[in-house]
Simulated scan of single mutants.
Amino acid sequence: MRTLMLSAIIAAVGLFGLTAHAQEFRAGKEYVELAAPVPVSEPGKIEVVELFWYGCPHCYQFEPVINPWVEQLPEDVDFKRVPAMFGGIWNLHGQLFLALESMNVEQSVHDAVFSAYHNEGNKLDTPEKMADLLAKNGVDREAFLKAFNSFGVKGRAEQAKKLGMAYQITGVPVLVVNGKYRFDLGSAGGPQRTLEVADFLIEKERAAR
């Protein structure tokens, strides 16, 4: 009898924990459910998109928090970074990111770009300044400039602009899960809570399959 009672208590506590967690994050509070879901690039996976800008201090501070989380994501989750394209230097830096992504550079190169902007006062406001910095970090200068000005990268930049509009973003960093749920550090309650909201919504989508 005691064993049965203990099992019942444990089950009840577990159920309460799940219920409490489900109530903790709500649409309209920690995240927004988009009225018009945006198609994902790999329908067989749960997509998580981070929209960011190299010049954003919050994005820079979020990097050491989100990167370890990304590394341990399960195989059914597809993580993507998309540059926010609000015009001017945002678009220039977005094209920089997409060029580097097309070249499959190491994460350390992206770290160097962030650091140059935030710690060295290098605004990277011309392709030449970008190429000079990248050359110091092991990236071929001419190969970068070729990629930066390529038709493919410019086409992807246009796609990034359209995605930002479809997600209805007004700032960064922003996360979007499966093209349906949008949230940020402010709505979630800080960097770590942002990842907890992401985990919650990933599980929500996984359970709905």
Rank of each mutant, 00 (worst) to 15 (best):
M1R: 15
M1Q: 15
T3R: 06
M5P: 14
S7V: 10
A11M: 13
A11F: 12
L15G: 11
L15N: 14
F16M: 13
F16D: 07
G17D: 14
L18A: 12
A20N: 15
H21A: 13
Q23R: 15
A27M: 11
G28Q: 07
K29P: 03
Y31Q: 06
V32T: 12
V32Q: 14
E33Y: 13
P37S: 04
P37A: 10
V38P: 06
V40E: 08
S41A: 12
E42V: 05
P43H: 02
K45H: 08
I46T: 11
V49R: 10
E50M: 03
F52Q: 00
C56S: 02
P57N: 05
C59P: 06
C59N: 01
Q61D: 11
P64A: 05
P64G: 13
V65P: 12
P68V: 03
P68Y: 08
V70A: 12
V70Q: 10
P74K: 11
D76L: 14
D78F: 13
D78A: 14
D78L: 09
P83N: 04
A84R: 04
M85A: 08
G87E: 03
I89N: 07
I89P: 06
W90H: 09
W90T: 02
N91R: 05
N91H: 13
N91Q: 06
N91P: 10
H93S: 10
G94P: 04
G94M: 02
Q95S: 00
Q95T: 00
L100G: 08
E101N: 13
N104G: 07
V105T: 09
V105W: 07
E106W: 05
E106G: 15
Q107F: 13
Q107E: 07
S108P: 11
H110L: 01
H110T: 06
D111E: 09
D111T: 05
F114I: 04
S115Q: 14
Y117K: 09
E120A: 13
D125N: 06
M130F: 05
A131T: 04
L133C: 01
L134F: 04
A135D: 12
A135K: 11
K136H: 07
K136I: 10
D140M: 10
R141D: 14
E142D: 15
K146C: 05
A147T: 03
A147H: 04
F148N: 04
S150C: 01
S150K: 05
S150W: 00
V153T: 13
V153N: 09
K154H: 00
K154Y: 01
A157F: 00
E158C: 02
E158H: 11
K161P: 01
K162A: 01
Y167S: 12
Y167I: 04
I169Q: 14
T170C: 03
T170F: 13
G171N: 06
V172P: 02
P173A: 00
L175G: 08
V177R: 08
G179N: 09
G179I: 04
Y181M: 15
F183D: 08
D184P: 08
D184V: 03
D184A: 00
G186W: 03
A188N: 04
G189T: 06
P191V: 04
P191G: 02
P191K: 03
R193W: 02
R193D: 10
T194L: 07
L195N: 05
L195G: 10
E196V: 02
V197C: 01
D199G: 00
L201I: 03
K204D: 07
E205H: 09
A208L: 13
A208P: 05
